[in-house]
C-alpha cells in the first residue's frame, strides 16, 4: 500500500517548465538553422569585404562554383579540374535553355573563390562561363568590417 503511493508521487513530477524550455530551444535552433550552407564549401576561405551584404532576394537559378585552388573547383559536390568545367557548365546551360527562354541568360554564376588563389584563375572560370553562355556573375565575399580600417590605414 505504502509502496504504491510513493511511486505515483514520483510519476507526477511537474514536467511543464522543462518542456517549455525545450520547446523554446527547438524554436531557436529552427530559426537559426541555415540550410543554404549546403553550397558553402568549408575548404574555401572567402576574402572579406565590408560591402558584401547578403542579397535581399535569392539569385535566379544560381550555380555555385567553389574555386579551391589554382587547379580544382567544386560544383555541387563534384570536384573538377578548372579545365573540365566547360563540359559540366555546358550541360547546365542546356538544361536551363530547355527550361525556358531567357532562363540561361538570367542564371547567376556564384563564384566562391579562395582569397589566396590567383585572380587569373577566377578570370579563367569567368571566361569559361562566358564561352558557355552565362552572363551574370556574383563574386562572393565574407561580410566583415575589418577592411575599412585596413583601407584607410594604408
Amino acid at each position: 500500500m505504502r509502496w504504491a503511493k510513493t511511486s505515483t508521487k514520483i510519476q507526477e513530477a511537474d514536467m511543464t517548465p522543462m518542456i517549455d524550455m525545450v520547446f523554446q530551444l527547438i524554436a531557436f535552433f529552427m530559426v537559426v538553422i541555415n540550410f543554404s550552407e549546403a553550397d558553402q564549401n568549408q575548404r574555401v576561405h572567402l576574402p572579406s569585404s565590408e560591402l558584401a551584404k547578403p542579397p535581399d532576394a535569392p539569385a535566379e537559378s544560381p550555380i555555385t562554383i567553389n574555386v579551391i585552388s589554382e587547379e580544382v573547383a567544386i560544383i555541387g559536390a563534384q570536384e573538377v579540374p578548372i579545365a573540365g568545367l566547360t563540359r559540366l557548365l555546358t550541360l547546365e546551360h542546356q538544361v536551363l535553355v530547355r527550361k525556358g527562354e531567357g532562363k540561361a541568360r538570367e542564371a547567376t554564376i556564384i563564384i566562391r573563390a579562395d582569397g589566396s588563389t590567383e585572380h587569373g584563375v577566377v578570370q579563367q572560370v569567368i571566361q569559361i562561363c562566358q564561352q558557355v553562355g552565362f552572363e551574370k556573375f556574383a563574386l562572393r565575399a565574407k561580410q566583415q568590417e575589418l577592411v575599412t580600417t585596413r583601407l584607410t590605414d594604408t
Partner: peptide
C-alpha cells in the same frame, strides 16, 4: 538542431555582368 548548429559569417555578393 544542436548538432547541425554552426555559426557562419554572413556572405554577400558583388554582381558582375559580363557578356
Amino acid at each position: 538542431f544542436l548538432l547541425t548548429f554552426k555559426i557562419v559569417a554572413p556572405e554577400g555578393d558583388f554582381n558582375v555582368k559580363m557578356p
